[in-house]
Nucleic acid binder design. Structure first.
Lengths: 278, 278
DNA sequence: TATTGACTCTCCAGTCGCTGGAGGCCATAT
DNA sequence: ATATGGCCTCCAGCGACTGGAGAGTCAATA
C-alpha cells in the first residue's frame, strides 16, 4: 500500500493529477481509508497509469483513454480509434506547417519593409448571397459607376429590397488588368421572384444566387484604386510562398466607395480570392 | 454605424466573439448606446478585426495580439515575438510528428499481434537520487541477489536510512547480454556523510549521487526475467522506428523482485533507457 | 508523550477562447 | 397591437489540469 506521494514519485505523475484521475474515475486508488480519506495505491496499478501516460502521449483525450481501457471493446474499434487519431494528427501537422510558412513570410516582410505596409491576409469562407447582377465587358472606372448607379436606381424604383450588404464585382479574368475586364456587378438583395430587371440603356440585370467561396484569401484595401494592382501582385507572391494556389474568379467588395461620396482615401475595398492548398 | 450583427456578417466574426473581444478590451465597438447598451461599430474598424484574425491564424494568443496592436512597441520587439512564435510552432510540429510515428508504430503492432502484448513506452525524466552502490562484473542472477542482500544488511546495521525507493541496477554495457554484465547495484538512501561501507566479502559500497536522466524511454515488465531480453529487442525497434537514438547506460528498477518473496510472475521491473531525438 | 514537520484531505478559483442558453429589453414591419 | 428577430447581461461549461486555503493525519524525534 503506497500513499499518493510515494505512488506519484514512482510513476512520475503529479499528485494533483492522480487525484483528478480519481475524481473522473479514470484511475482510482485500490483503497481509500474510510476515516481519513487517504488514497492508497499498489504496485500493481503502475502498469495501468503507465498505459494512460503512453496513450496521453498519443494525443488521446482522457475520455478516449477511459473508453480504451475501461471497457474491453473489440480490437476492430481500437484500430479505428487509432486510425482516426492518426488522421487528426496529420491534419494538425499540415495546419502548423501552413502557420509556419505564414509566420516566415511575415518575418521576411518585416525585415524588408520594417513593419510598415504589412498586409493582413485572412482565409475565410464567403457565404452565398442573392444579388441583382449584370455581367459585361467594362472599359473604364467611370462605366462601372454608371452600372452601379443604374442598378441602384432600379432597386429603388422596383419592389426589390436591398440587403444592406455591400455591392461587389466578380472578375472573370485570369489576371488583374486594371481596366477593361469581364466584370459582373452584383448588388445584394433579398431573394425575390422577379427574374430580370431592365436598366434601360445599361442593359438587363438578373437576379441570381452568387455561390459561396469555401476558402478565400481576403484582405482589405484602404484608399483609392490605382494602388490595388500592387496589392494583387503581393497576394500572388504570398500564395506561392505559403503553399496555396489561387483559384478562378476573384471579387471586389465595395464596403465604402464612390457611391458614399467620401474622399477616395477613405475608400474601403475587400478583395476575395479563392484559394486551394497547392 | 453598424449594429453588432451587421458587423459580424461583414467581418465573418461571430457575434459572441465580438462581445467577448469587447469584454477583454481587445477590440471595442466605436460606440455604445448608454441607454440600450447596444454596441455600434464602424467600417473603419474592419481592418483592425481583420488584423486580429490574421494574427490569430499565426497561433498568437489574444493577449499577445493585444500587445502587438494596442501599444505601438518597437519593431525590434515585434520581430522578437514572431521569431519566438516561429520556434514554438517548429517545436510543435516536431512533437506532432513524433506522435504520428508512435501512433503508426502502434497500429502496425495491432495489425501484427492483435492488440495483445503491446508494450506501453513512456518517455519521462528520471530524477537524480542518492544511493549506496557497488559496481562489479556480475556473473549470474544469484550473485546479484547476494550483492543486494549484502547492501541491505549493511544498511540495517549502519546508521544509513533507506529511502523507500526501489533498488536499481545500472548496466554499463552496449548491448543487453543477459548474464555476465558490468553492473552497478544501487540502493537509494538518504544523503549521508559516510562515504563508504564495507560489505565483507561482497566488497565495499560507495554512497554517491546517481545522476538524472533527462529523457528516458521507460516501460514496465511484469514477471520473471528470462523474457526481458525479448522486450529489449522490441525497444530497440521502437526507438529506430520512432526516430530516437538509444543512449549509454540503462537501468533496471526492481519495484517488486526476489527480495519481496513473492511468486516470480508477480515481479515488476521498470526499464529505463536514455534516449535522444535522432 | 508531546511536538514537530511532512503529507494528505476537500473545496474553490482560475486557466484559454470561446459557445450555448435563459430571461429580458429594443426595433421594425405588418 | 403584435409578432418577429436582434440585442443585452449573466451564468455555466468545455479539458486537463494547477495553485492555494484551511484543516486533518502520520511518523519520527525530543
Amino acid at each position: 500500500m503506497l500513499k499518493i506521494g510515494e505512488f506519484s514519485r514512482l510513476s512520475q505523475v503529479p499528485v494533483k493529477t492522480l487525484r483528478y484521475y480519481d475524481e473522473i474515475d479514470l484511475f482510482n486508488p485500490s483503497d481509500i481509508d474510510r476515516f481519513t480519506d487517504y488514497r492508497y495505491y499498489t504496485l500493481d496499478q503502475l502498469p495501468r497509469i503507465h498505459s494512460i501516460m503512453a496513450l496521453k502521449e498519443f494525443g488521446l483525450s482522457l475520455e478516449e483513454i477511459a473508453q480504451l481501457l475501461h471497457e474491453d471493446l473489440p480490437p476492430e474499434q481500437i484500430r479505428g480509434m487509432f486510425r482516426l487519431k492518426q488522421v487528426q494528427v496529420q491534419e494538425r501537422i499540415r495546419e502548423e506547417q501552413a502557420r509556419l510558412a505564414q509566420i516566415e513570410f511575415r518575418l521576411r516582410q518585416i525585415e524588408l519593409k520594417g513593419m510598415m505596409e504589412t498586409v493582413d491576409i485572412v482565409i475565410k469562407r464567403i457565404e452565398p448571397f442573392h444579388a441583382l447582377t449584370l455581367r459585361r465587358i467594362v472599359l473604364a472606372r467611370k462605366e462601372r459607376e454608371f452600372v452601379g448607379q443604374s442598378i441602384h436606381r432600379a432597386i429603388l424604383a422596383g419592389h426589390i429590397k436591398w440587403n444592406k450588404a455591400s455591392p461587389a464585382e466578380i472578375l472573370y479574368e485570369e489576371e488583374f488588368r486594371g481596366d477593361y475586364s469581364d466584370t459582373e456587378y452584383t448588388m445584394p438583395v433579398e431573394p425575390n421572384h422577379t427574374p430580370t430587371v431592365s436598366l434601360g440603356e445599361a442593359g438587363t440585370a438578373t437576379l441570381r444566387e452568387i455561390p459561396a467561396i469555401e476558402a478565400a484569401a481576403t484582405y482589405l484595401h484602404r484608399g483609392d484604386y490605382p494602388s490595388l494592382n500592387e496589392k494583387y501582385l503581393f497576394l500572388q507572391r504570398w500564395a506561392v510562398e505559403n503553399g496555396y494556389k489561387l483559384g478562378g474568379t476573384w471579387r471586389f467588395v465595395y464596403h465604402r466607395g464612390p457611391m458614399h461620396h467620401v474622399d477616395p482615401s477613405e475608400y474601403l475595398t475587400e478583395l476575395q480570392h479563392p484559394v486551394e492548398r497547392a
